[in-house]
Write a protein that binds this DNA or RNA. Structure first.
Lengths: 216, 216, 216, 216
DNA sequence: AATGAATGAGATTTCATTCAT
DNA sequence: CATGAATGAAATCTCATTCAT
């Protein structure tokens, strides 16, 4: 769950031509772009942090823009993995489905509050006007699958007679919106770290509202 | 209601030193910052669009950063004015309070989708990490008052026996979250213009969910 | 006749905003481009030699390419002035027209061997493939007028019964070609300075051949 | 006669270390240098076009500069071969020597207008100031032999009583100068392709002038 | 002999900011 | 008060060249 995973130890050590320079570049880029944004993160600084030379970056990625996109893509994939794991964990068959839904809400909020997600959001919102394709790329890779999976789960709960959901995708969006409803203020727009307890409470409040609206 | 009002003709003509230069600078800044973001909007370009020279900008605002903040402040004030007008319009005393709440939802969504609001959001999210004070400044001037006013209205509705709201501020946040739940996707993160009909439908769906959760 | 004229003393001294920076930039550019060619002459070096900062160059000329073109234009104008002066000096009315033609030949060769002309030629030949417009620009400003003027003179000499010239423009081209016939080798393609005596002799040999072909 | 002959199929196949890589490198270099000049032609691009890797180029030629020189040397040799063939074809013994001289003039002009010759000229003029040895190298390999051979032929014609030539080498230079007198303008400094007819006419005009000056 | 990967040095260009008028 | 002109600093990107394999 670390934002910038240290390069995993490779089994066989190459002394030269190490293709894991790509990894260290992407890690450095994720960190710098995440902290400073596309414009203020200089390729020089990324190279320095990655421990490679500038031309190495350019030979690998061709353009600062492309490096940015690949970096975002990785972050989105990582975020998506976390989110999907959370959703997959939702057991809709047991009688404790309410507790499970609360747990899911907490997980979703935790994911959204992760540094990875926050910086991803910052970067996308900041650059989406310059490159609108970013929006589609990300929603295809992260928000889309998340919503689909969540909608499916809610449909199951509905079929099981627990919820009364006519439009599962809408309900999914509302569930996410509700769990995050308090987080913008609590985190001061992603500026402040939110205490785990507060996050949990906010998540529960959101799920409660959702249940109030949809539980049979 | 135009986002960037053209400088109105001034009644008294000065030969020079017209204090409305400040206005045209702020207008130009709002437009450029809104389109390009803080980094990519160059002071040169703002000066050109404002029809003044660069040093004039610096003598008025001292720093690009300060100009940015003032520009954001203005946008926030303008947005707040619109939002408050919408909320003030909510009549909680009549029997048609449900329709009024639906209308309010629609207004809120419309405000949030306005170019002014969208670009404000973009700018803040993009720069808030560099200057966390932005967050407080904006929430004090725009989101805060909005939430207060909305919470007050909801409390009234609760007192009047229409809703069952224990925590009005939480409910206010949830109402806003619900009305916007579908907008992120519909507008492709603010990239696409959303048809007025779609926006209205999305707003109603949000208000409906809110009522399902809170209506007595 | 100096390639890089020192900035002429201006009558009124401005202490600041001296527009003669343009002059010193152009002078430095002419020298650097002349010595090193377009690619190897760096804007840094030109700025240093001109005693200005790099951005000053860019604010004056916008682009290295444009600076190059303006520099070439000036050199061409200067060369043209010299060449025209030489041709204007040809008196076709006197009985000593042969001597005058020899003198003209010498002047033309001297002009062509001037550092200004040599470096102009180098630069144009080197860059004309990248920017074919250079060719037309220069022939319109330098070679064209020269040929016209020379052709006119030869036509006069023909009318006066001294020469038998059917196509004056062709004859003009041939006269120039003949006077320069030996110079390519003598100057080792512009690498070596040619002794004034050798240049004069070569010029006379060319004019002699011209007279052998065209004198009545 | 193609300027850049495609590498001919090699008779003996080595698994690697094929010595015809040198050929393909030289061919690619000739083309790139000819089109872009020394500076703008990157070793990367040459390696790509040659279908080899950069280090291969360096192991063969050591330096971009040396590759350039070898490339020029080859072009000069090729040009010289063509020119000498043209001159060797001049039969000074027949009574049709005038026609033969006209034909020779046409051949010379054709050679000079060949892409090979034009790009050679461009490259030398562009780089001769940086490396003056280029001048001697080329005149030894191309212009020098050409002039010698041509001078010898003219001397023969003089001995045969057809011409009155005192200084055969001077006459040779003048003949070449005269045949090319119109080509600079016609070809717009090597920018434009000249129609074969125009080239022929220009060549004849030059030879005519030569004959007017030197024919007995 | 040949190569994929890496790099130090340097290219052009832009920007926020400040003088002197 | 407003400005044209100037600049230090830094941005992205390219290139000739060299290792280690």
């Amino acid at each position: 769950m670390s934002v910038v995973p240290t390069a995993v130890a490779e089994p066989e050590e190459h002394l030269y031509g190490r293709p894991d320079k790509r990894r260290s570049i992407l890690d450095a880029a994720a960190q710098m772009f995440g902290e400073l944004g596309f414009e203020r993160a200089s390729v020089d600084a990324i190279a320095l942090k990655a421990g490679v030379s500038k031309p190495t970056i350019y030979s690998h990625f061709g353009t600062k823009e492309r490096l940015f996109r690949e970096s975002l893509g990785e972050s989105a994939a990582r975020l998506n993995r976390d989110l999907m794991a959370a959703i997959d964990g939702l057991d809709v068959t047991t009688r404790t489905w309410r507790a499970a839904l609360h747990a899911l809400g907490e997980s979703l909020v935790a994911c959204h509050q992760s540094e990875c997600s926050q910086s991803l959001q910052r970067q996308i919102v900041a650059e989406v006007k310059r490159d609108p394709e970013l929006s589609t790329a990300i929603s295809e890779r992260a928000s889309g699958p998340l919503l689909d999976a969540l909608a499916t789960k809610l449909a199951r709960l509905s079929e099981a007679g627990h919820l009364r959901v006519k439009d599962p995708e809408l309900a999914a969006k509302q569930l996410i919106a509700l769990t995050n409803a308090e987080m913008v203020e609590l985190s001061a727009m992603g500026t402040r770290r939110v205490a785990a307890d507060d996050a949990r409470r906010a998540a529960r409040a959101g799920v409660d509202a959702f249940l109030a609206a949809y539980a049979r």
